[in-house]
Design a protein around this nucleic acid. Structure first.
Lengths: 147, 147
DNA sequence: TTCCTTGCAAACGATTTGCATTGGA
DNA sequence: TCCAATGCAAATCGTTTGCAAGGAA
């Protein structure tokens, strides 16, 4: 079923639909993010592309992918921008950041727990007259490797 | 009972315990944060202190208060650093950010819902072998004023 | 040919730091 | 007096942008 190529294919289609090219740099970033265990910083990506892409081009690539909603950018607990494939490509998930090594990884919250989170979020929105559009749940703690 | 002065008093004591002074600038920042409906950015604070405190001093003030754990710094959804009184002064709470006006405000999640959140977080930690030390739940949506 | 894309360098905005000065205990 | 705190200016860091050159359709 080509599961491995889904994100790549979807990304190419999205860009082509916007009359933009699926260039090597753009493809590389999508590939890297697809195979990463969690969101990557611009610095991580600059290293990951092995200096094959100049800093300014990397940022431009990220900006294009973000504008086309292939990736999303968000600040990690330390304020550094991190990027990951958009949820329409990966599914909804949360993050856990290790306070020892600083690594941030994805947490694909099981359906039953996610339902509970949704209920809580909806209830809070109701109580505070806030029209909820989405949420983020981040855990801080110590990962298995750091114990 | 001097409820209004608790944070101010606690902040002064904390600084004095560290042999630091509770200067006017430091006091101002604590007062502003104590009376704000949500976390403030450095830019907000610079405006709030009415130019009475130079930029560099304001940042130094924030850094001192952060190091002494009187305030905490965290990035809002747009990546700008925001500051608020530490939870030992205000109690645990979450945040909601309006995607229209960008305002971030506190959400003192009711005890019953917070208990549910705690259970979920604990369960996730168990399932993913992650020693959870804390969590952040942020809601994105549209606030009452922006509808 | 026509645009989109790239690369380099300069520009930027937010935050930090060096250093001499000020001021409180 | 003595050391923390301050203020200004210069330095940094991550990120963005102008502009001319390169490349795919």
């Amino acid at each position: 079923m080509g599961q491995r190529n889904d994100a790549l294919t979807a990304a190419r289609r999205r860009l082509e639909a916007l009359q933009m090219r699926f260039t090597p740099a753009r493809r590389s970033v999508v590939e890297i993010l697809e195979t990463s265990p969690g969101p990557q910083s611009a610095a991580d990506l600059i290293v990951a592309v092995e200096g094959a892409v100049p800093i300014s081009s990397l940022y431009r690539t990220l900006s294009v992918l973000e504008d086309s909603e292939v990736i999303v950018r968000f600040p990690d607990p330390n304020g550094v921008a991190r990027y990951e494939l958009a949820e329409w490509l990966t599914g909804h998930h949360h993050h856990m950041t290790c306070i020892v090594c600083g690594a941030t990884s994805d947490v694909p919250v099981p359906k039953d727990l996610e339902t509970a989170v949704d209920n809580i979020v909806a209830e809070v929105g109701r109580r505070f007259d806030f029209q909820v559009a989405g949420h983020r749940l981040d855990l801080q703690g110590v990962c298995a490797q750091c114990r």
